[in-house]
């Protein structure tokens, strides 16, 4: 059974994203504990990459800060292993294909299993290249999360039919970042998914306000928020934890 099932079993899921090592791994670890306490159902943890082509300026800057502070894949995996000994919130790693491939795809997924990571989200591995990662995923019990976008159209059926864990629905064109309006297209996208497969759908890219999250939760199974949280971390640095906790609580309350 997928480790992700519990995420969507207690109502609408709230999924915060943070970049590991921004501003330090110690702060990241504390944030994960506190966000779980504040109601996060799944934590999407970014393994920073030097050239994050799917990210807007906010998460790009966080990746640069984390790498400059000396964070590495090994240090992040060790931290997750430590954290999960006393906190059961599921964790999905978000990174780009090169850090995984260069680490050794099988070695990476084996370590993910060892530290209890439930899933990986890799934006630059589309459906057509899934064989790069997929063959190792069942062996190590790690789900490969599929993404769909407003431009996916006919591709949605194909992607949904083979999806595992949940589907990451990209709400709008472009890169990650706060947006004020999210079109109704994403509602249609989710409808198309559900016609093919009963799998949870979480919406990300551009979500920042509680009212917006509430609106999206009408038709989505979960809401993913990245840039809005990373912005708070960027603003308060090491003192960000209470501010992030307050934000996560308000978002979680708004969707349930």
């Amino acid at each position: 059974m997928s480790k992700l099932q519990q995420v969507f079993s207690k109502g609408k899921a709230f999924i915060p994203f943070i970049t590991a090592g921004d501003p330090s791994l110690e702060v990241t670890e504390r944030l994960m504990f506190k966000m779980a306490e504040a109601g996060a159902d799944l934590i999407e943890l970014g393994v920073p990459f030097s050239d994050p082509i799917a990210e807007g300026p906010v998460i790009q800057a966080a990746s640069e800060r984390a790498l400059a502070a000396g964070v590495t894949t090994d240090k992040i995996l060790a931290m997750v292993g430590r954290m999960r000994k006393s906190c059961q919130v599921p964790v999905a790693l978000m990174t780009y294909v090169n850090p995984i491939f260069t680490y050794g795809t099988e070695r990476f997924l084996k370590k993910c299993q060892a530290v209890g990571i439930a899933a990986v989200i890799v934006p630059d591995v589309p459906f057509e290249e899934r064989e790069e990662l997929l063959p190792f995923c069942p062996t190590y019990g790690v789900d490969l999360i599929s993404m769909i976008a407003p431009t996916s159209n006919r591709r949605i059926r194909m992607i949904a039919s083979e999806a595992q864990g949940f589907i990451y629905c990209v709400s709008s064109l472009g890169v990650t970042g706060v947006r004020h309006k999210i079109g109704s297209i994403v509602e249609q996208m989710i409808k198309q998914v559900k016609e093919v497969k009963e799998i949870p759908c979480a919406i990300g890219f551009g979500v920042s306000q509680p009212e917006q999250a509430k609106e999206l939760a009408r038709f989505a199974d979960g809401v993913i928020v990245g840039s809005a949280i990373v912005k708070i971390i960027g603003q308060y640095g090491a003192g960000c934890v209470p501010h992030v906790v307050e934000y996560v609580r308000s978002m979680k309350n708004s969707i349930n």
Binding site: A54, D124, I148, A149
Partner: peptide
């Protein structure tokens, strides 16, 4: 993974948003 391969190299490693344009 057959599309646009040169031996083991090449491929289409881009975000889903770009796949329809490509």
């Amino acid at each position: 993974m057959l599309n646009g391969r040169f031996g083991i190299h090449g491929g289409q490693y881009v975000p889903e948003t770009l796949m329809s344009a490509i």
